[in-house]
């Protein structure tokens, strides 16, 4: 691999199957026997799963040998779903990732969740009657959202994370590079998600103008700033100055449009250098 790497040296060998044939996609990997594809996909599991939570690197079994890291990667489909639970009965995964081949030889990071099982849980994913609400997109659970926000979580987070996304993403980017794929695509679920992805070197396919507009209008006197009128817990004036605050306000519907159709991409090994919230004093 000869491309210039701004962020770190991703130069590595192309991924090959046990017979030495190169693999170019999830579809290719999924053709392999289960143990071979498990060995490949295990490389994207964050280190903490093995070090802190005691999963076995070779067998992928839990420390109690009760269950395994779950890897769903069927032959014939270019999809991967990987889930790690501390205990099979746990509601939340320690680590959960969904990845897909796209039509254009890119890899889509469809979803990634990392949960600290020791942290308090906020049931923002259920309504007040305990019914699922598709992460608050159907019926919001306002009380739980307020508690989650006050505990320092972002919209759609049910628990604090494990501060290991960076470790995961480094592994993931290296994995994508080893397939010879040069673009990762994703859709950030929230404003805070989008800003976080900017920090990892993503640029926007759609939504960059919106992100700049959001930043402009959250400045004192701006349209969004003026809507932080204290009418709800999610619309307090100080929220204009933090990523998480803005994100909750947007989740609360402060934009004139839904948070939708924001699409981002990353050229593997390159940092796009995008920063749509360039305030040097910004905090999360």
């Amino acid at each position: 691999m000869t491309c210039a790497m701004d962020t770190e040296n991703l130069a590595l060998e192309h991924l090959v199957d046990p017979h030495g044939f190169p693999l170019f996609s999830l579809l290719d990997i999924n053709e392999l026997p289960q143990e071979d594809k498990e060995a490949i996909y295990a490389c994207i599991v964050p280190e903490i799963i093995f070090t802190r939570f005691g999963f076995d690197r070779d067998t992928l079994m839990s420390p109690q040998v009760t269950h395994k890291i779950e890897i769903i990667a069927p032959k014939g489909l270019g999809l991967l779903r990987l889930a790690v639970k501390r205990d099979p009965s746990d509601i939340d995964s320690l680590f959960f990732v969904e990845v897909a081949d796209t039509h254009f030889n890119q890899v889509e990071l469809s979803f990634c969740l990392i949960n600290d099982p020791e942290a308090p849980r906020f049931n923002i994913d259920q309504d007040t009657h305990g019914r699922e609400n598709s992460f608050g997109t159907l019926r919001r659970n306002i009380d739980e959202e307020i508690k989650a926000m006050r505990a320092g979580l972002s919209p759609y987070q049910v628990r604090r994370g494990l501060k290991t996304f960076k470790n995961f993403f480094r592994r993931f980017e290296r994995f994508v590079a080893s397939l010879g794929v040069d673009i990762i695509v994703a859709e950030p679920l929230s404003y805070s998600n989008a800003i976080r992805y900017e920090n990892y070197g993503f640029d926007y396919t759609t939504g960059r103008q919106l992100m700049h507009w959001i930043n402009t209008e959250f400045q004192p006197g701006g349209v969004l700033y003026n809507r932080l009128d204290g009418s709800t817990s999610f619309r307090q004036p100080e929220m204009a100055f933090t990523v998480r605050g803005r994100s909750w306000a947007i989740h609360d519907g402060i934009l004139d449009q839904p948070w939708d159709n924001i699409k981002i991409y990353k050229s593997v090994g390159r940092d796009a250098g995008v920063n749509t919230f360039p305030d040097p004093d910004r905090t999360y």
Binding site: G78, L79, R81, I91, S93, F96, E98, A100, D101, T102, H103, E108, S110, F111, L113, D125, E132, S134, F135
Partner: peptide, 17 residues
Amino acid sequence: TLLRDPPHLANPDDFAR
């Protein structure tokens, strides 16, 4: 414009259920 759908995976909550 597409004959084949883009890849789609359900969100983790829905998947878990």
